[in-house]
Every structure is written in C-alpha cells, then in structure tokens.
C-alpha cells in the first residue's frame, strides 16, 4: 500500500518536503515505517528522539498502519 507521511519541524527539513510518499506492505507496523524512513533519511537517527502519530494520536512501535491513515513524524516538541 502507498502511504503519505507528514513531516513537521526539523523532520520537514530532513525530508526536504512537508510530506513524503512511501510503499509499505499491508501489515506494516510503525517499527517497519521507522526502519524504512531511517534507511532513506539517515539524518532521522541523529534526532534526540521522534514519535509517529497515526490519525492525530501518538502511536506505539507495534501498531499496524492502514491505508488512508494520516501518518505524521513528530520530532521532539518544543512549544510553550
């Protein structure tokens, strides 16, 4: 399945874009997604940490991704 990944903050600079498109297997997890992204964008591994959000909620590494989910990369937040 093809998914679209939104990027914010420093992740947007690492991707060079506010979103990237990826091909994932149908039962892919957050862990699989992070692995693939880190292969393509090694600078992600230099971040202090980063989370993935699915449909506006923080996701866990084992969560499964579904087609049409809204996926976002959440680098360390710094609001306030």
């Amino acid at each position: 399945m093809k998914i679209n990944v939104l990027a914010f903050g420093v992740a947007k600079e690492i991707f060079g874009s506010s979103s990237v498109s990826l091909e994932l297997t149908n039962d892919a997890t957050i862990y699989n997604l992070k692995y693939l992204l880190e292969q393509q964008y090694p600078r992600l591994k230099q971040l202090a940490s980063y989370m993935v959000a699915v449909n506006n909620e923080y996701a866990l590494p084992g969560d499964t991704i579904h087609e049409r989910d809204e996926i976002a990369i959440i680098p360390p937040v710094s609001g306030g």
Binding site: F8, G9, V10, E13, Q46, L47, A48, A53, Y58, A72, I74, P75, P76, V77, S78, G79, G80
Partner: peptide, 28 residues
C-alpha cells in the same frame, strides 16, 4: 498544563540567531 504542553503537544519552535537557525530540542 504548561509542563505537559511542553512535553506532548506537537508544536515546534525554531530560534533565529545572527549566525543561523536551530529547531529547539531536536538534537541531543
């Protein structure tokens, strides 16, 4: 509320200095 907001709410700030810009907290 302010302490939790700073930990969980997806908002990012970039500081602009005379010699460049840095996303706050992004790197260790």
């Amino acid at each position: 509320i302010i302490d939790t907001l700073k930990q969980t709410v997806p908002i990012w700030k970039k500081e602009a200095f005379e010699d460049g810009e840095v996303w706050v907290a992004a790197h260790p």
